[in-house]
């Protein structure tokens, strides 16, 4: 039983690339769900668009990464429009159904044999799609601290990733404290009331959908650059729901919620997983197989999502006054 290893893994992951990707996705959901009340159950589609834009444009078409990124962002806006136009005038559940359906449409399409030449089928796209980014790496050595181990490449991705998150968090903070933020929060509470005061709720909802989607797409781009591989089955709906759990853990409609949530979430998830693995390997737990650890982690996420949504939607550090409101 190597507790140092378990802790080290957990901390590395909690601050690492995966946490960054999920943090970005959750920041998008925070704008959409936390502030505007839009139930986007297909955030993973936006991430997939980002990741596949990089993969397809750089590897399949041999173009530059610096062309792929803006194209990916444009594609993301287009996706938001496609999702929003039919559904944003309708009740909230239609958006939820259509977004989750679309995320599956996208996954099934990129996975299909018919489009294998472009998207690589079930194997996805593998290759040095992030090279142009890694060429700019100013770091010369890996990090190997007792509780933190990153390769030089990871270190560079992590540095840029958290910087992006800092910038986007600042932007979110400015947005939600402005009159614009007031309108979207009003829409979350009661759309008709806001409309009756002369605000075009449809446009605001579309803006929130686009902005939140863009954040998810940035997450997908980071994914492709960091992992140098995109596979369709990385983009299952569960990614969206992990992001929701992260958002609720940190607190919906709280500017720092996604950051706090992503760090705690990945720390806990990796810690529980590694801890169980070690216990099983050491023979202390005999009723579980190593393959059982995966499902157990998912079960914890599922229970966490339910529990947080029911008891603490404003996050584990949330505002008591808001809690009192929910109890009315």
């Amino acid at each position: 039983m190597d507790l140092t290893f378990v802790l080290g893994q957990s901390i590395t992951q909690a601050l690492g690339v995966t946490a960054i990707i999920y943090c970005l996705a959750a920041m998008g959901l925070n704008l959409q769900f936390g502030y505007t009340g839009l139930l986007n159950f297909g955030q993973v589609a936006f991430a997939a668009i980002g990741a596949y834009s990089v993969g397809v444009i750089v590897i399949s078409f041999g173009a530059s990464l610096w062309a792929a990124i803006p194209i990916g962002l444009l594609a993301s806006v287009a996706l938001a429009l496609v999702l929003g136009i039919p559904t944003l005038r309708l009740r909230a559940d239609y958006l939820a159904i259509v977004t989750i359906a679309t995320s599956e449409i996208i996954r099934l399409m990129v996975r299909s044999i018919a489009l294998r030449d472009t998207f690589g089928g079930a194997n996805g796209i593998n290759g040095k799609m992030g090279q142009a980014f890694h060429d700019l790496n100013p770091f010369h050595a890996d990090i190997d601290l007792p509780f933190l181990t990153w390769t030089r490449q990871d270190l560079w991705v992590v540095t840029v990733g958290w910087s992006l998150i800092a910038i986007f968090t600042l932007a979110t903070w400015l947005l939600v404290r402005s009159p614009w933020g007031r309108v979207v929060k009003g829409i979350r509470e009661d759309e008709n009331a806001v409309v009756s005061l002369g605000k075009n709720a449809y446009v605001y909802k579309m803006q929130a959908l686009i902005l939140g989607g863009l954040l998810g797409t940035v997450g997908g781009i980071v994914w492709a650059i960091a992992k140098q591989s995109v596979q369709p089955d990385n983009f299952v709906p569960d990614v969206t729901f992990f992001s929701y759990t992260i958002l609720l853990l940190g607190g919906a409609a709280r500017v720092f919620g996604p950051i706090v949530g992503a760090i705690i979430f990945w720390f806990l998830l990796v810690f529980v997983g590694e801890f169980l693995n070690q216990m099983i390997a050491a023979g202390w737990i005999t009723f579980l197989l190593p393959t059982d650890v995966g499902p157990i982690r998912f079960i914890l996420v599922g229970l966490g999502l339910m529990g947080l949504m029911i008891f603490r939607p404003q996050g584990i550090f949330g505002d008591k006054r808001e809690l009192a409101l929910d109890a009315r």
């Binding site: 007031r182 929060k185 009003g186 009661d190 009331a193 806001v194 005061l197 605000k199 409609a253 409101l325």
Partner: peptide
């Protein structure tokens, strides 16, 4: 608008 302060309701 429940989770908005009274003054924000007004400003809206």
């Amino acid at each position: 608008l429940n989770r908005l302060r009274v003054i924000d309701n007004m400003l809206l």
